[in-house]
């Protein structure tokens, strides 16, 4: 039985194995992903992002528990950074999701970003595809808490939840750094701390002042205490509202169209790049060309053309792509 079949049957082991394959040998996972693709598109993909330590994992845990009460099946992907030195990583998000570990309706996967800087791992996108095809109703994706550049999530999630906490000082900075544009829902977590209300007002003011806001969806601002569950009901309602909005306004389809376009582009790029390097491993005289550059016998622009031309020839001779 293929891994894809196992995934379709909801088997945890197959699901886990396929995600590993995607992480380690993505080219070998293509067959399974192909088989799963027709079964995707049902899950609501919710991104949870924000600076380190604002409570993303705790919120994810609380949201998942709340959704479980309604019987929804939940997938969770939590991404942490890898050490740039050793390549290793301590994946710690799961610690806040201990009670979900043995719930058969929940699948949690920790992921190292493995050098990728946008807040997700390269494999996250396809891992979501696996969970989606496996019948998860909601997939919660926790990004790396990098604060500034977690833009991957916009291209991945249907609903992006941006978390902030009072008293971290850099909040307004973060907002300025472009978070404003990506949030579908704001959550002010750790509302048990002083100044939550003030942060909420500041944020509201900023939203009101922003001329570029699209008019049909006003991102709501929710307040939560993730550790006690306070405000989670409202947060979930806000996320669901957004989903409904996406569905009824036709924006969901529009977003997904954009997303597929982007994905197609990157798959195409990856595919060509892979083929080109395969070709060059066989046929290449890279070093020679570099020497020529050094001796000023050619320039990089002409050299590139000369390198690619025979590759294109050889590819066009192949009937079957």
């Amino acid at each position: 039985m293929s891994l894809a079949e196992g995934v379709r049957r909801g088997e945890v082991r197959a699901t886990a194995k396929l995600i590993t394959l995607i992480e380690n040998h993505p080219e070998s996972a293509v067959e399974d992903l192909r088989a799963l693709h027709p079964h995707t598109g049902n899950a609501h993909i919710v991104g949870i992002t924000g600076s380190p330590g604002i409570g993303k994992s705790t919120l994810t845990d609380a949201l998942a528990k709340r959704w479980r009460k309604d019987g929804a099946h939940i997938g969770i992907i939590a991404v942490d950074p890898n050490s740039p030195f050793s390549g290793g990583a301590l994946l710690g998000d799961r610690i806040r999701m201990q009670e979900l570990a043995t719930d058969p309706g929940v699948f949690i996967r920790s992921m190292g970003a493995r050098g990728r800087l946008g807040g997700l791992a390269r494999a996250t996108h396809n891992a979501i595809r696996v969970l989606d095809a496996g019948g998860k109703d909601v997939i919660l994706v926790e990004t790396v808490g990098v604060g500034q550049s977690e833009l991957d999530i916009v291209r991945t999630a249907d609903t992006v939840v941006v978390g902030l906490v009072p008293g971290m000082g850099d909040d307004i900075q973060t907002i300025k750094a472009g978070i404003l544009e990506v949030a579908d829902v704001f959550v002010i977590n750790k509302a048990d701390r002083p100044d939550a209300r003030r942060l909420m007002m500041e944020l509201q003011t900023m939203l009101d002042l922003d001329p570029e806001r699209h008019s049909h969806w006003e991102p709501p601002i929710e307040r939560t205490v993730a550790t006690t569950g306070e405000g989670i009901e409202m947060l979930m309602a806000a996320i669901r509202n957004h989903w409904e909005h996406l569905t009824y306004s036709g924006e969901l389809e529009q977003r997904r169209r954009e997303r597929y376009a982007a994905e197609l582009q990157s798959v195409v790029e990856d595919y060509w790049r892979m083929r080109f390097f395969e070709y060059w491993q066989r046929e290449g005289h890279w070093e020679q060309v570099v020497e020529q550059l050094l001796r000023k016998e050619t320039d990089p622009f002409s050299a590139a053309r000369k390198l690619v031309a025979p590759f294109l020839d050889s590819e066009s001779r192949r009937v079957n792509l």
Binding site: T58, L90, G92, I95, R96, T227, T228
Partner: peptide, 10 residues
């Protein structure tokens, strides 16, 4: 009182 949710830091 509820129970303490331990956090692990590295």
């Amino acid at each position: 009182f509820g129970v303490h949710q331990a956090s692990v830091v590295f």
